[in-house]
């Protein structure tokens, strides 16, 4: 278990989705991956598959047509996951606030953990945001850990928690 946690902290893979932003934050996100800022120093890789991702970087004010795709992507990312809203328009709408085809930010659709301001967000700001997201990822990972008094049951059942034995454990206490 510990080895997975360590791996996650050392190499968080990111998933990027554009929900109707102006491309400004998206190209800055790509610039973060290129030699000047080279975020692969932290072991971060941009992945196209949500099932391999830990950090979800979302740009754009969430247009009505993107909403369902965003929700699907969020549900496919395995726990623990952190959502980072990059750029003003994904935080609260920015200049697109109160337009007819826009949802006023990512938080209206899925829970957001870190808000990165800036229009467009600088690479430095994005790196700051991701560093903050890493702390949250670690905390969330810890929260997901199995409590010590249940560890015996889990080990006995090879990873899965059995309902019967859980109830039995509760009854005993």
């Amino acid at each position: 278990m510990k080895i997975f946690e360590l791996g996650k902290a050392k190499s968080p893979w990111i998933l990027h989705y554009n929900t109707g932003s102006c491309n400004g934050c998206d190209i800055e996100l790509l610039a973060v991956l290129t030699p000047r800022y080279d975020v692969e120093r932290f072991g971060m890789l941009n992945k196209g598959n949500p099932k391999q991702a830990d950090i979800l970087l979302i740009t754009g004010p969430v247009t009505k047509r993107c909403r369902e795709r965003l929700l699907n992507l969020y549900l496919q990312v395995p726990e623990p996951k952190v959502v980072v809203a990059v750029g003003t328009c994904s935080c609260g709408g920015g200049v697109f606030r109160h337009m007819y085809n826009v949802e006023n930010g990512v938080e209206r659709v899925i829970p957001v953990d870190v808000y990165v301001p800036g229009c467009a967000a600088r690479p430095q700001q994005i790196i700051d945001g991701v560093v903050k997201a890493l702390q949250i990822l670690r905390e969330k990972g810890r929260a997901l850990e199995v409590p010590p008094h249940l560890k015996k049951i889990v080990r006995g059942r090879e990873g899965g928690i059995d309902r019967e034995s859980l109830l039995e454990d509760l009854r005993r206490r």
């Binding site: 980072v84 957001v112 808000y115 301001p117 430095q124 700001q125 700051d128 903050k132």
Partner: peptide
């Protein structure tokens, strides 16, 4: 200097 990222707790309820 640019603004630094904020977490959920520090956010203003803008609406």
């Amino acid at each position: 200097y640019y603004a630094s990222p904020i977490t959920k707790g520090e956010k203003l309820d803008w609406s």
